[in-house]
Amino acid sequence: MSKFLVAGVTQIETIVRVDKVPVSYVPLTSANDSIFTAVGGDAYNESLALKWLGDDVTFMSIVGRNQDLGIINPPDRKVTLSTEYIVPQMNETPTEVVFYDKNRKQQIFEDIKDLRENTYDMSMVTPLVNSCDMMVLANANFCRPFALAAAEHNKPIAVNIRNYNPEKEKYNTDFLKPAKVLYFSDDTLTEDPYAFIDRMASTYGTEVIILGQGSEGLIIYDKTKDIRAHYKTVKTNEVVNTIGAGNALFACFLHYYMETGDSVNAIKNALLFASYKIGFMGTSNGFMTTEQVEQWRNLIWGIKMTPFEEHGN
């Protein structure tokens, strides 16, 4: 078990299943079990996944000042996130609507409200930094001081950059420079993926870079192991909804990477974790147990537990 301090966005998400993206105009579309609304957000989803895998998680976020924090932990969920460090100070909670179709195409509409103008009270953060093993950050404005705090206390940082935009790279340097692990999605990538990873690694000296490629799998780079490899997706479940799969993959990778230091085994476990996740509706549903991960990795790759893992160290 590792201790993670996770900071990032919490939002209300509405997910809509449609026949095809982009959506064609019709006055009314009526379809049963096609609209799902719940709490989401990259950092929220990652916190849930880490907690599900047995880690100690401190989740720090900001929401609307009138937001009922009871929605963070619906009664039918098996794990609970503490709301102690979720601060209701924004005018409203950020919201997002996602259209998705059977071909895994997505069209996202987001409204971050006054997120950019808000800051987090770092007096709550500083006492907790020393006790965590890693800080997992979103690249939101209010998370910038978290990166500084981690650097000051020599704590490793993992950052989910999500969609890469070359025009905004300069605004992300506060996260890119200190990060030990970076996660990107290739949804908006316009350059060769291997050239992109090489450029990121040489520019920022990052130890581990994961580039998610949707149905094509991913590319992982590990500076220490001198690895730059592509892995295809695996199948453990029928695809229902791929939204949130990247968050699940990133969180699972961090869980096993911090536990064993083995990036290859960690990414294989993460691929399994994400493949199971996409069989469920909602970004915060459908997480594998560690026992299920072990069973599937032995089935697909024949990877047995190491003595380190076997004794729970």
Rank of each mutant, 00 (worst) to 15 (best):
S2T: 13
F4T: 10
V9E: 09
R17I: 10
R17L: 14
V18D: 09
V18I: 14
S24K: 14
Y25E: 07
V26P: 02
S30H: 08
S30T: 11
D33H: 10
I35V: 15
G40L: 07
G41T: 03
L48H: 12
L48I: 14
A49L: 13
L50Q: 05
K51C: 09
D56I: 01
M60H: 10
N66M: 01
D68P: 12
L69E: 10
V79L: 07
T83D: 04
Y85S: 01
E92G: 04
E96I: 07
V97G: 04
K102A: 14
R104P: 02
Q106N: 06
Q107K: 09
I108W: 00
D111W: 10
K113L: 03
D114V: 05
L115Q: 02
R116L: 11
S123M: 06
S123P: 07
M124L: 14
V125Q: 03
M134F: 04
M134V: 05
V136I: 09
A138W: 07
N139W: 01
N141T: 12
N141G: 04
A147D: 01
A147N: 05
A149Y: 08
H153G: 02
N165H: 15
P166Y: 01
Y171C: 05
N172M: 15
N172T: 11
D174T: 11
S185M: 12
E191W: 11
P193E: 07
M200Q: 15
Y204S: 11
E207I: 12
I210T: 08
E216M: 12
E216W: 10
T224V: 15
H230G: 08
K232T: 10
I243L: 05
G244R: 09
L249E: 06
F250G: 07
F250H: 13
T260G: 04
Y276C: 10
Y276E: 03
Q292P: 07
R297S: 10
F308P: 00
G312Q: 00
